[in-house]
Amino acid sequence: MNAAEQILTNARLILDDEVCLGSLKIRDGRIAGIDDTPSRHPGALDCQGDYLMPGMVELHTDNMEKYFQPRPKVAWPGRPAALAHDAQMAASGITTVFDALSIGDVDEQSMRHGALLDMVDSLQAIMTDDMARIDHRLHLRCEVCHPETLSRFEALAGSPLLGLVSLMDHAPGQRQFASLEAYRTYYQGKYRFSDEALEAFIEKQLANSVLYSSAHRRAIAEACQARGLALASHDDATIEHVAESVEYGTRVAEFPTTREAAEASHRHGLAVMMGAPNVVRGGSHSGNIAAEELVRLGVLDVLSSDYYPAALLDAVFRIAGMAEGYPLPQAVATATRTPAEAVGLTDRGRLAPGLRADLLRVRVVDDHPLVQRVWCAGRQVH
């Protein structure tokens, strides 16, 4: 075994359709071979019966924004913020992350827009300078009801990191906030509006939705099709929402809010994504469909850590342990193979010869999966 090779042995390999005790060889950042028997090579790393699975692929997390704005009105320097986020992703077992950055915000006092270019530039810098532990891509979350969303999207559409675009509409009466009462409760609690200020806020958001949402949605979808960018819907709630998403060539259905929307999306071939925190907590924090119900229906395709990176691995093993859950290889695929395929990444997400050696060693202690080691393109990063 030369210096460019590694052998991991005595590992429970989570393959496409089975789990077997064996060994895996890494050469030049790729998986060079898999055996269903332990290796006897003296230099092999003994995984002590731990699971060995593909590194996880995260399509939607706004975790990086927290590092750039750790407190309200507090901006943090770009490169250190990006590197701290990168370290947390690696420690969570995520080896490919589509960092979700918001374009357009209903909060006019938000720092998101001001930090947007800094976040993109910082991501590009840590990748270009080979400072990142893992592979970072860009996910632009486009709030279609915001007046400046289209122009801001067009300014960033040429970024070499861009790989996923989602279309959101958080206007009152739409999708996640079909209930105006729920909308009032959420935004009054979040921004501490007076009753009068809240009604003025709602009136403005409704007007913006009428003026911009449909036109922005169509223009951005057409731009994504022209550029070959993967497109995601967000918070689809009805059959009509799903039909529109299919018309626009959507590949991923992010967080459908109802059973009918999830089933219709799955039926049309969209990869149905749900939040890992939804699984860990036993339901949606906003009262929408529970991820566990979609597992029982067999229509949950992708898990995302959303706002809590460590939830992703935990959720994978939880849905594998459910009475009506997925077999472990299928559960693992929701955070590895399926998200990779949904955005056109065919070189990762599985344990198979020739693919990137993005790997995660996991030990289960008291029914809880613990990250032991992480490799990204064959390099140990945690």
Rank of each mutant, 00 (worst) to 15 (best):
G249D: 07
L359T: 06
L117M: 14
V299Q: 12
W375K: 03
A261I: 03
E254S: 10
V210P: 02
L123N: 07
C47D: 04
L370K: 09
G43Q: 07
L13P: 05
R379V: 14
M119G: 01
K190M: 11
G43H: 04
A221N: 05
V365F: 03
C376M: 00
L116N: 05
R227A: 15
M131D: 13
A82F: 05
P172A: 09
A125P: 04
W375L: 08
K25F: 02
G163I: 07
N278S: 00
E292D: 08
M322I: 04
P353D: 05
V120D: 02
A311V: 05
L59G: 07
V272H: 05
S122K: 11
L328C: 07
R259D: 11
G249M: 10
L312C: 04
R133S: 13
G114T: 14
A230I: 02
I220R: 11
L198Y: 15
M119H: 01
L83Q: 03
D301N: 10
A331H: 05
R217T: 15
A335I: 09
E108L: 14
A157M: 06
M322R: 02
D62P: 04
T238S: 11
G378K: 05
Y67C: 11
S194M: 04
R251C: 04
V144A: 09
D50P: 10
P327C: 03
M273Y: 01
G269M: 15
D130C: 14
L21V: 13
R30C: 07
P77S: 09
A4S: 13
G325L: 05
I94A: 08
V74K: 12
L180W: 06
S92W: 14
R30D: 04
T346S: 10
V210G: 00
Q88T: 09
D358E: 11
S151T: 10
P172W: 07
L180P: 01
S151I: 06
S265T: 10
L45S: 07
C142D: 10
S39H: 08
E244S: 15
R350L: 11
K204N: 08
V295M: 12
L123R: 06
E148N: 13
E260C: 10
V279R: 13
D46V: 02
E324A: 14
R373F: 08
R175S: 03
P72I: 02
M168N: 05
D366V: 03
T258S: 13
A207D: 15
R71N: 03
P42E: 12
Q205A: 13
I289S: 05
H234E: 00
L150Q: 03
F317C: 11
I239F: 15
A91Y: 09
D235K: 00
E143S: 01
A81W: 00
R27G: 04
P72E: 00
P160W: 12
